[in-house]
Design a protein around this nucleic acid. Structure first.
Lengths: 213, 213
DNA sequence: AAAAACAAGCACGCGTGCTTGTTTTTCTCC
DNA sequence: GGAGAAAAACAAGCACGCGTGCTTGTTTTT
């Protein structure tokens, strides 16, 4: 028996439990998208994965649209956090460009990318979902671009440098897409290495141009 | 009144009409995927767009899965035909590399790419659909790669050349994905130009390496 | 007459949103 | 501090619409 006034096991303040339930629902929604696709991500499936009932899920998110809109925001925040995490601790020296390219490719791979892709596909033909996806994805893209410029020491005042960084992000998305249905990692390593070499040469040449003035 | 024995207007041999109906159903299925997404592409919607009844659609394709499997094959063939078409008539000279890159990007853009992307997303979590998508997509990828190598005059015996061509195809997919929800064409032009410049330099350098021996 | 193409309708399962019900927690008043 | 009401969190069940696959029916063609 608990001490007088103590909450029972695994129970805390109701607000905390509410927050925890919402969090579990959001994480479950993202996992569902990645593993069963948009079509398989029913409210019932998400609730089951979160360990609550459909009624509980509905208490927190009135409609399916509300749930997945919130899941989209949650996932976008997680992807930004992951990007910042990855940006720390990159090596210096010869392999830095390759490490930056690899970091960007990682940002567009894995279960969260799979989940995001499901939402993009759904958003292509759902105007309301699309109004949520577009600004969040643009924000992530801008952050990724900014991080890449900074980590590469790229001088965007030089012609072509911005486009080269943009191309790197587009390559990352393309590799993510190519990896959607098959294990693409061996092929991907060669592509990353080659592109990093080309990118490094381009950026070095632009830096030399600057030195000549 | 028709001449004795002549078919009424718009009717031909039954086999021909059957073939035409199937063709219209397949084209309608691809258009549905591109415009209403996988979730919106019901058999009823496809039949309506094809101008036939659901019963007629079912006569030709017993299940929804049969219909979309056939539509996938149809669309893959169309994409290959389009690729071959685009490969003809590319310019020589300085802008050839850029034209080839643009051709590849075009191969991963537009309504058929939108439809393909819907099927890829659905296939990510549908093992049966996935067994159909993977070989067809690999085939298209190989054809696109082969065409690119030929059109660029790329020497794949040189290290890095194959990976550079692979990277170009991955860029094409990435640009297609980036253009899924927004009109990306202005940004895309800059990326293509810069990428082509970097690719051309890389290929030219590899050709000079060959000449030095 | 038989087969093929086409069309209409039926039964079923599924998923969503809503309503109703239960349990737990919080708050107010005495 | 305890009782009781209210609110919140959670759960169960219902009604409805939708889409698929199948059956039945009709028309056209062979």
């Amino acid at each position: 028996m608990d001490a007088p006034g103590a909450a029972p096991a695994d129970r805390g303040p109701q607000q905390e439990r509410s927050r925890a339930t919402r969090q579990r629902l959001l994480e479950a929604a993202v996992e569902c998208l990645a593993q069963t696709g948009a079509a398989g991500s029913t409210v019932g499936a998400v609730a089951e994965r979160a360990g609550v009932s459909r009624g509980a899920a509905q208490h927190h998110f009135r409609t399916r649209e509300d749930l997945f809109t919130a899941a989209l925001r949650h996932m976008s925040q997680t992807r930004l956090d992951d990007l910042r995490c990855r940006a720390a601790g990159l090596p210096e020296g010869r392999s830095r460009t390759e490490a930056v390219v690899e970091m960007l490719v990682d940002a567009y791979s894995g279960p969260e990318f799979d989940a995001a892709l499901q939402l993009w596909s759904a958003a292509a033909n759902d105007p309301r979902l699309r109004t949520h996806v577009i600004p969040l994805e643009e924000h992530i893209g801008r952050e990724a671009h900014r991080a890449a410029v900074e980590l590469l020491g790229a001088d965007e005042s030089k012609p072509g440098v911005r486009e080269a960084v943009r191309a790197t992000l587009d390559l990352a998305r393309g590799l993510g897409l190519a990896g959607l249905l098959t294990d693409d990692r061996a092929r991907r390593r060669g592509v990353i290495r080659q592109w990093a070499a080309m990118l490094e040469r381009e950026l070095a040449e632009k830096r030399r141009d600057s030195g000549r003035r």
